[in-house]
Amino acid sequence: MKSKVINDGPERTIALVFDKGDEVVSTLERFAKEHGLTASRFSAIGALEGAVLGYFDWERKDYERIPVPEQVEVLSLNGDIALDGDQPKVHAHTVLGRRDGSTVGGHLLEATVRPTLEVVLVESPGYLRKKCDRETGLALIDIGS
């Protein structure tokens, strides 16, 4: 993956271009850790050779895994990076386009890039911290009171 700061204002903007074979979630989390990102949002387009999406099952308090074992276009990928404890954590949702024009979407759990993924990431000057919500078992952004 290559990166370049394209705006160094109060909200720093970084372009990330993923390479074929990069795993999206772990690469984003590693980049965030290496660059000290604590509160960011991002959007992306590109293509994947496969993915695993998730649908949150309220009763089980866990994600139902939805394998997508095929080449797909990333029609929309939006998310944030916030601290979960002291580690950056990606939370992203995506809509993927199949060859026949149909779509599948959900929480992005895993994805492998092919041929590229172009991400625009905006780092906010404030902190977003995630805290475990007892009712759902999910790490949710805590903006305080």
Score class of each variant (00 low, 15 high):
residue 1 M to K: 06
residue 2 K to I: 13
residue 5 V to C: 05
residue 6 I to H: 03
residue 7 N to A: 15
residue 8 D to A: 13
residue 9 G to A: 15
residue 11 E to N: 11
residue 11 E to R: 14
residue 11 E to M: 14
residue 13 T to D: 09
residue 14 I to R: 08
residue 14 I to D: 03
residue 14 I to C: 00
residue 17 V to L: 08
residue 18 F to T: 02
residue 20 K to F: 05
residue 22 D to F: 02
residue 22 D to N: 11
residue 23 E to S: 02
residue 26 S to N: 13
residue 27 T to Y: 08
residue 28 L to A: 03
residue 28 L to R: 05
residue 29 E to K: 02
residue 30 R to V: 14
residue 31 F to W: 15
residue 31 F to C: 06
residue 32 A to R: 09
residue 32 A to D: 07
residue 33 K to M: 12
residue 33 K to T: 12
residue 35 H to L: 05
residue 36 G to H: 02
residue 36 G to W: 01
residue 38 T to E: 12
residue 40 S to G: 09
residue 40 S to E: 09
residue 42 F to V: 08
residue 43 S to P: 05
residue 44 A to H: 00
residue 44 A to R: 00
residue 45 I to S: 10
residue 45 I to D: 00
residue 49 E to A: 02
residue 51 A to V: 01
residue 52 V to R: 13
residue 55 Y to C: 10
residue 56 F to E: 00
residue 56 F to G: 03
residue 58 W to P: 00
residue 59 E to Y: 09
residue 61 K to Q: 15
residue 61 K to E: 01
residue 62 D to H: 07
residue 63 Y to H: 13
residue 63 Y to L: 11
residue 64 E to Y: 07
residue 66 I to M: 06
residue 73 E to A: 15
residue 74 V to F: 02
residue 74 V to D: 03
residue 75 L to N: 12
residue 76 S to K: 14
residue 77 L to G: 05
residue 77 L to Q: 11
residue 78 N to E: 15
residue 79 G to K: 04
residue 79 G to V: 14
residue 79 G to N: 12
residue 80 D to I: 14
residue 80 D to R: 13
residue 80 D to S: 13
residue 80 D to M: 12
residue 83 L to K: 09
residue 83 L to R: 02
residue 84 D to Y: 12
residue 85 G to P: 14
residue 85 G to C: 07
residue 86 D to N: 11
residue 86 D to R: 02
residue 88 P to L: 04
residue 88 P to M: 12
residue 89 K to M: 13
residue 90 V to A: 10
residue 92 A to C: 10
residue 93 H to M: 11
residue 94 T to I: 11
residue 94 T to F: 05
residue 94 T to W: 07
residue 94 T to D: 12
residue 95 V to K: 06
residue 98 R to K: 14
residue 98 R to Y: 05
residue 100 D to L: 04
residue 100 D to T: 02
residue 102 S to F: 01
residue 103 T to I: 12
residue 103 T to Y: 05
residue 104 V to M: 03
residue 104 V to I: 15
residue 105 G to Q: 13
residue 106 G to I: 04
residue 106 G to Q: 06
residue 107 H to K: 08
residue 109 L to G: 07
residue 112 T to C: 01
residue 113 V to N: 00
residue 114 R to F: 11
residue 116 T to V: 13
residue 116 T to I: 08
residue 117 L to I: 07
residue 117 L to M: 08
residue 117 L to Q: 04
residue 117 L to W: 00
residue 119 V to I: 15
residue 120 V to H: 00
residue 121 L to S: 07
residue 121 L to Q: 05
residue 122 V to F: 00
residue 123 E to K: 10
residue 123 E to T: 03
residue 124 S to K: 13
residue 124 S to P: 04
residue 125 P to M: 02
residue 125 P to L: 01
residue 127 Y to L: 11
residue 129 R to F: 10
residue 129 R to S: 14
residue 130 K to R: 15
residue 131 K to Q: 14
residue 132 C to A: 09
residue 134 R to T: 11
residue 134 R to G: 07
residue 137 G to D: 07
residue 138 L to I: 02
residue 139 A to C: 10
residue 139 A to T: 08
residue 141 I to Q: 10
residue 145 S to C: 12
